[in-house]
Simulated scan of single mutants.
Amino acid sequence: MLVVRPALPADYDALMNLAVLSGRGFTSLPEDEPTLRDRLERSQASFAGETAAPDAYYTLMLEDLSDNAVIGVAAVKAGVGLKRPFFSFRVVTLAQSSPTLDMRFDHQALVLVNECAGWSEVGSLFLRPERRMGGAGRLLAQSRYMLIGIEPQRFAENVLAELRGWFNEDGTCPFWDHVAQKFFRIPFDEADLLSASTNGQFILDLAPRHAIYTGLLPEDARQSIGRCHREGEAARAMLEREGFRYQGLVDLFDAGPTMGARRDDIRTVKEGRRLMVRLGEDAFGEEALVSTADIGRFRAVRAPVLIDGEAAVLSRDAAEVLGVREGEAVRVKSS
Rank of each mutant, 00 (worst) to 15 (best):
Val3Ile: 13
Arg5Met: 07
Ala7Ser: 06
Asp11Thr: 00
Tyr12Cys: 02
Ala14Arg: 06
Met16Val: 04
Gly23Thr: 05
Glu33Leu: 12
Asp38Tyr: 07
Leu40Asp: 09
Glu41Ala: 14
Arg42Ala: 12
Ser43Val: 13
Ser43Lys: 07
Gln44Ile: 05
Gln44Lys: 15
Gln44Leu: 08
Ala45Gly: 08
Ala45Asn: 13
Glu50Tyr: 05
Ala52Phe: 11
Pro54Lys: 12
Ala56Thr: 13
Leu60Lys: 03
Glu63Cys: 01
Ala69Gln: 06
Ala69Val: 03
Ala74Val: 12
Gly81Glu: 09
Leu82Met: 13
Leu82Gln: 08
Phe87Cys: 09
Phe89Gln: 12
Val91Ser: 09
Leu94Lys: 14
Pro99Val: 10
Thr100Asp: 13
Met103Lys: 15
Phe105Cys: 10
Asp106Val: 07
Gln108Trp: 05
Gln108Ile: 07
Leu110Gly: 01
Leu112Gln: 11
Leu112Asp: 12
Asn114Gly: 09
Asn114Tyr: 08
Ser120Glu: 09
Val122Ile: 15
Ser124Phe: 01
Leu125Cys: 01
Arg128Lys: 14
Pro129Val: 07
Gly134Ile: 10
Gly137Thr: 06
Leu139Ile: 02
Tyr145Val: 03
Met146Trp: 03
Ile148Asp: 04
Glu151Gly: 09
Val159Pro: 06
Leu160Trp: 02
Leu160Phe: 05
Glu162Ala: 00
Leu163Thr: 06
Leu163His: 05
Arg164Val: 04
Gly165His: 04
Phe167Pro: 00
Phe167Met: 10
Thr172Ala: 06
Cys173Asn: 02
Pro174Trp: 05
Trp176Val: 04
Trp176Pro: 04
Val179Met: 07
Gln181Trp: 02
Pro187Leu: 03
Phe188Trp: 01
Asn199Gly: 15
Ile203Asp: 02
Ile203Pro: 05
Asp205Tyr: 05
Pro208Cys: 13
Pro208Arg: 13
Arg209Thr: 14
Ile212Lys: 07
Thr214Gln: 12
Glu219Asp: 14
Glu219Val: 10
Ala221Leu: 08
Ala221Asn: 09
Arg222Ser: 06
Gln223Cys: 00
Gly226Pro: 00
Ala237Arg: 08
Leu239Thr: 06
Arg245Lys: 14
Arg245Asp: 11
Arg245Gly: 14
Arg245Tyr: 09
Gln247Leu: 15
Gly248Cys: 00
Ala255Tyr: 00
Gly256Val: 01
Pro257Leu: 12
Pro257Asp: 13
Arg274Val: 13
Leu275Met: 11
Glu281Arg: 12
Asp282Pro: 02
Gly285Phe: 05
Gly285Asn: 09
Thr292Trp: 04
Ala293Lys: 00
Ala293Thr: 07
Asp294His: 12
Val301Ile: 15
Val301Gln: 02
Val305Lys: 00
Leu306Lys: 10
Leu306Pro: 04
Ile307Pro: 00
Gly309His: 04
Ala312Asn: 08
Ser315Leu: 04
Ala318Glu: 08
Ala329Trp: 11
Arg331Tyr: 12
Ser335Asp: 15
Ser335Pro: 04
